[in-house]
Design a protein around this nucleic acid. Structure first.
Lengths: 209, 209, 209, 209
DNA sequence: TACTAAACGAGACGGTACGTCGCGTCTTGGG
DNA sequence: CCCAAGACGCGACGTACCGTCTCGTTTAGTA
């Protein structure tokens, strides 16, 4: 959760047992947490960022606006958390050879951009972050989730001697993720099997494998 | 101009002789057109999409809101036209060899993303189009401006025999533009000279030149 | 016509021969004058003061707004003239006896308030004058048209010796016209034959005839 | 309150016990009610109907426009309630004789038309009701407040045998109130002591007292 | 078991911006 | 100089959404 006022200080504080000895009063309803996030994503899918209003989210979640603002300090903070909730870690692949890893990885990313709740995550997140620069951290997080496993794969390949040690890993990652992103944002489509194969092939050419 | 109500059908219709030979009434002020677009872009640069309000634009342009709404049916339509107005054609390069063309092209695009009114065009346009799907055509136009000269260069290279005839031009364009786009959107930076050089080098490897 | 800018100075100026030796340019269309007044009254009858807009009047009169404003300096001025145009002189009665005169007069006024274009003149004029104090002269004129013949009748009766010389003519007129006005404004109805008869009877009692 | 959407049905329903025993949510602020009405009347007195704008009223009442529109569905409805709020009951007089009652009554009405917040009530209310026929009920109420005590006085006099049983009470009331109204609307003045006395004297002549 | 503090739904609140309409003026081309 | 058409600046309209603020009502964890 990203709420600054209540939780942020304790966020990384998993090992603090004596802290907050007794939270008195009625505890916050976890159902409300869930319902709000779900409603927000639902509205987001149906009508996009433009249609998302706090009143609408509150109504759908059968929750009062106060209940939302008790958890997040602004609309943007809530959206951020809703989107973050969808950012699940990518599977990691270690087939032993770069072509194998890359193929599985690209197919996996393309799949996430095509199906399920992650389908429109990229555009929504991007729109939110552009409209409100405070959301940049969410973008960073999203990028990291995609970027890290990819770089790990490439560095593993360097260690194995499959790639030249001076390979510009960042640039290759940019080209690969950029191709996927560019297609999604500008053409509104995702990569099918054939295209995935060819993208991997082209990337491998860059890597001179 | 993108105004749906009045002109759009006749927009590209430069060769229509009998069409409305005498437009009656006071003609719309071109100064207002100019002032509005300028004001909108000014506000956009200063405060981003979130800060742009019609009252503010009207005030800056020294124009009434009615004058704006006489030209565009909504805030989004106006923003669209404002953004479209800065989408200037890219220079085209024909040095005779693909590496030369590509180098100049990438440097040119990177420069547009770094300086002048076109600096934030990509993120603004993207945010607008994501929030309002009706703005997709603007995105298409923006893409076409960047994509067409690039494809032309690649196809010229195929004709010259520099590239294999079965080269997937679309994919290569995606990778190249995607790399530039991805860097701008997620890292908030643009390519410097060194990085431009390497991007071209990597793309050329894809093309097995 | 009440237009201050153009005509008012010349209004009472019937004996100015050398004035305006040759009005140059195209003369104003009398058809437009007519059409505007007619349209205004039409709109007034249909929708009342609240619905009357200059664009609507212009459209109905098939006239441009400029043509209206060339004749009147404001909406109120136009309405004033439109209402004034229906303020026709009342018939005068001289039967020789006060009861006879009064009976015909009251019946005549009641009839004007019940039929024809003068039906809603009183409320419209009143509303206009209350909303815009500049229209007080119109109210005065309207009152004078009704008041003068009535007072004349009463003073003739005094001269004939039918009434006491110290009769408060103004007060009697107030009571008589007030009764008619009050009924119209508050009950929305007008006097029928029986009520006319009784009003006259009661007024005569005041006059001790 | 005249608000149609919420209360009007239950407005006079003081004896409804089971009706909505627990109104949920934050209750409407009575201070806002008060402030709005006060501000509206203030503006009305200062500038008349023509100058009254919702933004101005909201600003003076230190209230948002939404708060006004939550209570009344339109500008007219609000004005209506503001005017109604000023319509205080008239004092009733029972001196035992008709001339005494009538004298006090007429002086009282004339005073209300001359001083305090009720001074311009008649013209404002009339103008509003003429511009918007929906306001007729307010006019009825206003009339009733003035008419009822007058009729009561006259009927008491009939019961006492002071007046003939066939006296046309309605017509006499029309003449008396009409005289006062007519003077106010057309001459813009009110009755002074001498004129009050004479009006009563003349009315008594009608009643043949 | 009773007390109490916080969370809950509902919805009113002050603002800000929206997109529309009307007024009175101005600017075209054409009598 | 008039005319129809219609754009213009201005200012008010009534609505929507934001984030805050009462209300009266639960719902735990003490006491």
């Amino acid at each position: 959760m990203t709420d600054v006022s209540t939780e942020s200080a304790a966020a990384g504080d998993a090992s603090a047992p004596a802290c907050e000895p007794a939270r008195r009063g009625r505890p916050r309803s976890p159902e409300a947490d869930e319902a709000i996030i779900t409603a927000a994503l639902e509205v987001l899918v149906e009508g996009g960022m433009g249609r998302l209003s706090m009143d609408e989210v509150a109504a759908r979640a059968a929750v009062s606006k106060a209940t939302i603002y008790r958890r997040w300090s602004s609309k943007e903070a809530m959206i951020l958390d809703a989107l973050t909730a969808v950012m699940t870690k990518l599977d990691t692949f270690d087939t032993g050879s770069l072509p194998g890893d890359l193929g599985l990885y690209v197919a996996h990313v393309a799949d996430k951009m095509r199906n399920g709740r992650t389908r429109d995550l990229l555009p929504h997140l991007l729109a939110a972050a552009i409209n409100d620069p405070n959301l940049q951290p969410a973008l960073d997080e999203f990028l990291a989730i995609r970027d890290r496993p990819l770089r790990a794969m490439l560095e593993r390949a360097i260690d194995r001697g499959e790639l030249a040690p001076d390979t510009d890993v960042a640039l290759v990652a940019d080209m690969l993720l950029g191709a996927l992103t560019h297609q999604r944002l500008f053409h509104g489509t995702t990569y099918d099997h054939e295209r995935v194969t060819r993208l991997v092939e082209y990337v491998l050419r860059v890597l001179a494998v």
